[in-house]
């Protein structure tokens, strides 16, 4: 059933105001969209966060922004932690100790916790088929600790551990294709989404929590602070990521790829680079080859995605 803004806007936010996220933070925008979707489906949610921006901003003891049961364990293991809570739920239902209320178990983790330190644990949960939705709030660096590079940081981006210096021009490697890894892992549902494309994102959430087994949605989360752009342009930057095909919107259902929203007109990557301070050095003539390489990779990936989605 399609989600209608006019309806869900009357629902209570499951993540309350007063959280300490930065001005213009994309993470809470995404969390609101995900939780409103599941609430509109009439399903209860239990959530978890690995250590990170969202976790710290939403749970400064003795206050919490969460209006759903929520747990934080450590940086790398939100997946195993919440998956075990799901296993407990399944166990209690089986023993008749709890009513089956079709609770949805959702993790909101940053890209550091997902692409890097927590990868093994997510992979384990997927392999064991534990029924959780893992939403990656992908701001493409370790923002909570001060903008360090992660496996999700794109080529050429400035971060505090891929600084721009006399011999190094920002990050020298491309980012991981984590959706591809999870698809190879046999995940029943995986997708890339973006907060500006809310209907696309909400449809993906509906699908993800309706299938049996684990699911993964990687959501681009443009971070004004870490990407160096004005705080009112969070949603604009999300749109630009999709329009340049830096962040294509697609899903993979049981191994079958589908492009869910295509850019009306594919914009050159340089427009995306110009809009963000983290790529500022790529506009210099001596770094043109990096910008060109990014464009080449984006084109190649987009071609490949279209081929797979045929």
């Amino acid at each position: 059933m399609p989600i209608k803004l006019k309806e869900i806007c009357n629902q209570e936010d499951k993540i309350a105001s007063g959280h300490r996220a930065c001005h213009g933070c994309p993470e809470t925008i995404i969390v609101r969209q995900v939780l409103h979707t599941i609430t509109a489906m009439g399903k209860p949610v239990i959530a978890a966060c690995p250590t990170g921006c969202l976790e710290v901003c939403t749970s400064p003891y003795p206050q919490t922004a969460w209006r759903v049961p929520w747990i934080h364990n450590a940086f790398e293991n939100a997946s195993s932690t919440l998956a075990a809570a799901w296993s407990t739920y399944k166990h209690f239902v089986k023993l008749g100790k709890m009513e089956d209320r079709d609770i949805k178990f959702v993790i909101f983790g940053g890209d550091g916790a997902t692409y890097d330190i927590g990868l093994q644990f997510i992979s384990g949960v997927i392999e064991r088929g534990q029924h959780i939705l893992y939403v990656c709030l992908n701001n493409e660096a370790y923002m909570n600790t001060g903008i360090q590079r992660s496996g999700a940081t794109p080529l050429g981006a400035w971060t505090t551990t891929t600084p721009v210096g006399k011999v190094l021009p920002g990050k020298t490697e491309h980012r991981k294709d984590i959706v591809g890894m999870f698809v190879a892992n046999g995940i029943p549902y995986a997708a890339q989404a973006a907060p500006h494309a809310w209907r696309d994102l909400m449809t993906k959430v509906q699908k993800a929590v309706s299938i049996e087994g684990p699911s993964y949605i990687d959501v681009i989360a443009p971070c004004p602070r870490g990407w160096r752009f004005p705080m009112d342009q969070t949603i604009y930057m999300s749109r630009l990521a999709v329009d340049t095909c830096m962040w294509p919107l697609y899903e993979v259902e049981n191994g079958k790829y589908r492009i869910t929203t295509r850019p009306l007109e594919k914009k050159p990557v340089i427009e995306y680079l110009k809009a963000q301070g983290r790529f500022g050095h790529l506009l210099l003539p001596e770094n043109k080859h990096i910008a060109d390489e990014l464009q080449r990779k984006v084109d190649q990936d987009w071609e490949e995605l279209q081929r797979r989605a045929k």
Binding site: S59, P60, Y61, P69, W70, I71, H72, I103
Partner: peptide, 10 residues
Amino acid sequence: IDHPKTFGAY
């Protein structure tokens, strides 16, 4: 779920 609690706060 009827009495949501926050576990492992900062």
